[in-house]
């Protein structure tokens, strides 16, 4: 097979989504839960990202991080540092981060005005 390494087989032009300045909000429940998780330490940040996959094509990715190598924009919401990767900013602009206190299916939820549909568990959207 000719893998193109020795030829001028350039990578295909990828779709580069526009980077937008993300505006997001956090519900009172989510602020309370983040306060419990972070304590008084505000050096940590909540990374809100999007990965490919899940039942609907995109999956939310929430992490508590100190820093990240991913190219991000930082938003301060409710006294918390929130990091959003620029590569997924177009998918996350306008979201609300909520927290549902339920024994089953509870946890952080993303309410996303950009999502046309989402899967049953709410972790995936399109």
């Amino acid at each position: 097979m000719d893998c193109g390494t020795c030829e001028t087989s350039a990578p295909l032009e990828m779709h580069k989504p526009e980077v937008v300045d993300v505006d997001l909000s956090i519900s009172d429940n989510a602020v309370k839960m983040l306060g419990d998780a972070f304590g008084d330490d505000r050096s940590m940040a909540l990374l809100v990202g999007v990965l490919s996959g899940g039942c609907s094509g995109y999956m939310y990715d929430l992490q508590i991080v100190e820093s990240t190598e991913v190219d991000c924009q930082e938003v301060n919401v409710g006294g918390f540092r929130v990091l959003v990767p620029n590569s997924s900013s177009h998918l996350l602009n306008g979201i609300q981060i909520d927290y549902e206190d339920r024994l089953m299916g509870g946890g952080f939820k993303i309410i996303n005005p950009n999502a046309e549909s989402s899967c049953g568990c709410g972790e995936s959207f399109s």
Partner: peptide
Amino acid sequence: TPRILQSEVSISNISNL
């Protein structure tokens, strides 16, 4: 391709080779 986002994935078309 719109789903690659920050993933480290690069695609080349080598059909003509």
